[in-house]
């Protein structure tokens, strides 16, 4: 059974006729050029944008689920986050429990440990560096223990070590009978960490499948207008523009 089923998803002038699914234990990468519709797709799934078409979560129509229950099942990490107030790291992570209406300290502690932010729990989040903040925002989503975790470019502002660390963490999160959908620009990382990829082009799905099925010369030329050096056999896989 699918965790998420997307049928004929459209948002006017942004994305059209998207059909996609996510199975339990899977990490799905959404790739594509700027403006291809990656963020829009994730925002629809995250309950932020209204859409036409159907999204099913465990065979239940998302639209018919109460907002709070939806938020317990689906956690959404937006592309850029900012705290309006000088909240402490601990308070930001605790906000992840808002859909549950509790302050589950164990969940908060675990999320902080998983993202390696435990040492700064009492620091104000606006005093941290961009990369440190990015891990705190992710910890906030993890604290809600969602069945499906959506992350819009979660590694964009991270250093190389933390890019790998966070992607390994997300993959481990997905393995636990849950699912992760993330958008990502680095195709080498996408090929290395994602089980399946979905390549968006001008708001439509150009290709979906395993990294080998999606990351072909033709697809990359259409989507990114580049000729790329693609070596999926090497460890780790390499996809760089020529």
């Amino acid at each position: 059974m699918d965790l998420i089923t997307i049928r004929q998803l459209s948002v006017s002038r942004r994305i059209a006729d998207i059909n996609l699914n996510l199975v339990p234990g899977e990490m799905l990468g959404v790739i594509g050029a700027n403006g291809a519709g990656k963020s829009t797709l994730l925002q629809c799934l995250g309950g932020v944008l209204p859409y036409r078409g159907e999204i099913l979560l465990n065979d239940r129509l998302l639209r018919q689920m109460p907002g709070r229950e939806q938020a317990r099942q689906i956690g959404f990490l937006p592309q850029s986050s900012q705290s309006a107030w000088a909240l402490t790291v601990e308070d930001v992570i605790t906000l992840g429990r808002l859909p549950w209406g509790d302050n589950d300290q164990e969940a908060v502690r675990q999320a902080a440990a998983d993202t390696q932010v435990s040492d700064w729990m009492q620091r104000q989040v606006d005093q941290l560096s961009g990369g440190q903040q990015a891990r705190v925002w992710l910890a906030r989503v993890l604290a809600g223990k969602p069945t499906v975790l959506l992350a819009d470019e979660p590694v964009a502002s991270l250093d190389l070590y933390h890019q790998q660390y966070i992607l390994t963490l997300l993959r481990r999160y997905a393995r636990n009978n849950r699912g992760v959908i993330l958008s990502i620009h680095d195709l080498s990382l996408a090929a290395r960490y994602c089980d399946r990829l979905c390549l968006l082009h001008q708001g439509r799905v150009l290709a979906a499948g395993t990294p080998a099925e999606v990351l072909t010369q033709d697809h990359l030329r259409t989507a990114f207008h580049i000729d790329a050096h693609i070596d999926l056999e090497s460890q780790p896989p390499i996809i760089v523009p020529k």
Partner: peptide, 8 residues
């Protein structure tokens, strides 16, 4: 955006 994604 975050507020709406949390079902508010």
């Amino acid at each position: 955006e975050v507020a709406r994604s949390m079902g508010l």
